[in-house]
Design a protein around this nucleic acid. Structure first.
Lengths: 121, 121
DNA sequence: TGCACACATGAACAGTTCTTCAGGTGTGGT
DNA sequence: ACCACACCTGAAGAACTGTTCATGTGTGCA
């Protein structure tokens, strides 16, 4: 029995590790879902919105538009994606809608990511 | 003095919070850099590669290609981006190159992100 | 030296993404 | 009732992204 259909010829010693990497804890579907989460954080406009909310706690769309220096339309589109994903939530007060971070884990990710700046310069 | 050039008409009570959100800790440039980091994690293939490395510690390209079920060429392209960003590093051994996570913060982010799965279902 | 394997790289193409523009909803003031 | 404001939404176009295909580099083996 020679090598299988896929991958490199050396399979005996690494098969166990490959299996471990594939089966344990994070399934392909889960990794894809987490990638989706990271993808939402991986846009300059959305990231700046989120960090602004992390600092300020709660801001309306026009304040966000002002803080991030992006058109209110673009902010609205960005917030819709974040809202749909449950990352932010809005609260209407008069004509304004105040947005806040709505996911504790995302808050932790944002906090933790700031540490990255100090090291990588 | 009426409202400024930008944003909503209500500016007095929120000006301080907007300023805080803009000035404190995370600058626009930093947020953009962090977005770039998240963007790299925000692709299914790259995310699966990273979680595989998180589990297995060290894997060669063909093992990764097998584990993630993506062509070795696609893996190579993905690894190049991650390598350039300092997220992974390669070690040559014979004809194979073994990759590993090279950034402690990214490792933390990946670990922390897994918690997200438990809550959001 | 020659071949096979593991991996890298460049070009090209399909799919996706983000912004802007134009128009729509809902709320408050007069 | 009307208008202005804060915000939302759909369509459209430019820019970007990720994969595949074809080819190139480097290592080990005979």
């Amino acid at each position: 029995m020679v090598a299988g259909l896929h991958g490199c010829a050396v399979q005996e010693p690494d098969a166990a590790r490959v299996a471990a990497a594939r089966d344990r804890l994070v399934t392909p579907e889960e990794a894809t879902r987490l990638a989706e989460l990271f993808r939402l954080l991986g846009d300059p406009t959305r990231a700046r919105l989120l960090y602004a909310l992390l600092e300020a706690g709660e801001l309306c769309v026009c304040d966000l538009s002002d803080a991030v220096e992006v058109s209110d339309t673009a902010v609205s589109h960005a917030l819709r994606l974040l809202r749909t994903a449950g990352i932010v939530a809005g609260r209407r007060s008069g004509r304004m809608i105040y947005y806040r971070l709505a996911d504790a884990h995302v808050r932790l990710l944002l906090d933790l990511s700031r540490e990255h700046l100090k090291e990588t310069g």
